[in-house]
Design a protein around this nucleic acid. Sequence first.
DNA 1: CTAGGGTTAG
Length: 318
Amino acid sequence: MVSKNIIPDVLTFNVLVDALCKEGMVVEAKGVVEMMIQRDIEPNTVTYNSLMDGYCLKGQIGKAQKVFDLMLSKGSVVDVVSYNTLINGYCKNKKIDEAMMLFLDMSRKGLVPDTITYNTLLDGFCKAGRIQNAQKLFYEMQACGQLPNVRTYAVLLDGMCKNRQLSTAMQLFREMEAKKLDMDIVIHSTLIEGLCIAGKIESARDLFCGLSSKGLEPDVRTYTIMISGLCIITGLTSEAENLLIQMEEKGCSPDNYTYNTIIRGFINNNETSRAMVLIQQMVEKGFSADASTTELIVHLLSKDEVDPALLPLIKQSF
DNA sequence: CTAGGGTTAG
């Protein structure tokens, strides 16, 4: 029996490189790229873009930059996606000024920044607390003919909420409604969090309760935001616990974030024994205390505020 | 192949 010798082409390798990168296996992805070169299958722009993103995801921005430089030196086409990927890498690593240099660089090369380019940079500025820069870029993108989309607004809304500019956030929210943009669950969750941060728990609750009438379903993040607002920010631990039960009933499973949030809420409000019940629940579901919750629990132990009978349970939660 | 939301002690 003679088997057909099928030689994988560049597209096949690209799928592999991208999958490895997304799994965090960037070393293996690089190995595949080297193998391609050995076999005289020239990696293309997509191959290198995937590899750059793989490095960026691991915070290895220097290596991502090297891939970018390699593309330039060997004459591979560097496209908008290449720039967007590297710009995102710099932004996520808090190097927004380097990201802006690339943005200027791409324009010099005649590449037109797209909505993704602007959204990425806007997020970088917002997360760096540079709201003024974000607002300026927001106007600039529109002047350049790039229409803001839902993600653009989501980025700005989050920036306003986190930087305690709730009234500007609310203004944006209304602007979105007026523009008939698709107001999805992310937008609503973001504003609910902003309201909680501003101490407006009643408004947050109203927005949360009105979701279903807008045809939206809260997801695990929405619930966690609401639970955090109730028990950590406001001290309404019982209501938070009810919400935990309610989310389960609605088929939305709490995750590690949810449990750590509510447990911290109970400990912060000196409700140690109820916190222990939730720790037990968390352990039973296979979740565990994160670094911050662990510190709180260790602190409780040091104050002798925990029933020694619970020690095995606590050990399990770490 | 690239862009948005959740926990951070005292």
